[in-house]
Design a protein around this nucleic acid. Structure first.
Lengths: 190, 190
DNA sequence: AAAGGACATGTACTTCGGTACATGTCCTCA
DNA sequence: TGAGGACATGTACCGAAGTACATGTCCTTT
């Protein structure tokens, strides 16, 4: 359901084609809210059927740009204020971390190094984005200010994960490595 | 695919039934890796078919506990070391934040307050969990130490989000509220 | 003895996201 | 002028996740 509102929200900034929207999703939301172009085109058609967006212009290579309608703006505003927030975050690396005790210490060390590097790079990427915005490279519309807030969340999230991976690699003697614990494993569960 | 390894990993700690696993997923992973019981039972059957787990015991009310096999341990170890990490995190609140400029300032303020509270509570819940572990309430097996690492990530993630929501509510005069910008909206995209 | 609640497992259906594959269009550069 | 690449849109299918609904079992309490 969120893709729908993602598209609506981006279109609220101005007309765009499916291709544009796919690019924007990739740019800003690549890691935070991925969307594939087939889904985008399909959803745009559905939104158009419901009158929440309409064709704005047809361009060169079959390009079709859409514009948000008043009904569409009302719809996304309603979602933003009345819709309830989905707080589930699926973070595969955290699921993995539950099972670190199954890894050989040096495999674990390597894994955590890579993770830390990845998150640090992501944070840096968002930080660069934020710096560009703070320099005024994108002007100062309300949209840009909102984007800046989103980017700040990205920075903080990735910094937190980078710090965590670093901490996990150094602080506790986490990994075990040996054979699976077969001596009285968690009797509470049997 | 991750549910599969989640189950395998939990079973590596000791035998458990689908019901136990559903409870553990809910307890520890509730917000970070949700799983519904129908999926769990189905996946357990599939894992048993493939010989990665086997029936350990049948209990009272149709209860069927599974035990991980050597092949299962090998499988999850392989996933942990050789499988590649999925770094996509879907955070709906961040998607929403891109569109804060569409909200009325007081709606936005209310929204951010609620978000901050929610994240702070989540962080506190994980912190309590961590404190119990550090007190030694759960003993000190490798499994418990891994869980502690996972919990630490939860704490840091939720603290980061709580701080972010608070910051977003106070620092910048984010929201706009007025009508959708129809004066030259993002010409780069048309 | 009956009733209610926690324990325990499942089927069926829907929706959503991901991947593979296919196609058409225009511009640029050798 | 022909080839390659970016632009642009789509179909088809699959697998994962979510929701609703259904059922059976055992224990505790009144």
């Amino acid at each position: 359901m969120s893709l729908r509102y993602g598209l609506l929200g981006l279109l609220a900034e101005g007309p765009a084609s499916g291709y544009d929207l796919a690019r924007r999703f990739e740019e800003v939301l690549g890691q935070i809210w991925p969307a594939q172009h087939p889904k985008i085109y399909a959803e745009l058609r559905r939104l158009a059927d419901e009158g929440l967006i309409e064709v704005d212009a047809e361009g060169p290579r079959r390009r079709r740009a859409y514009r948000i309608t008043d009904a569409g703006v009302a719809e996304i505003r309603h979602w933003l204020t009345a819709g309830d927030v989905d707080h589930t975050i699926r973070v595969q690396p955290l699921l993995r971390s539950l099972f670190f005790w199954l890894m050989q210490p040096d495999d674990l060390r390597r894994h955590l190094d890579e993770e830390a590097r990845f998150y640090a790079e992501s944070a840096a990427r968002y930080r660069a984005f934020a710096a560009a915005k703070d320099r005024g490279d994108y002007g100062d519309s309300p949209q840009v200010r909102s984007m800046r807030v989103t980017v700040e969340a990205g920075i903080r999230l990735y910094e937190a994960l980078a710090d965590w991976a670093t901490w996990a690699g150094t602080v506790p003697p986490t990994g075990a490595g040996g054979p699976p614990a077969d001596a009285d494993p968690d009797p509470e569960l049997t």
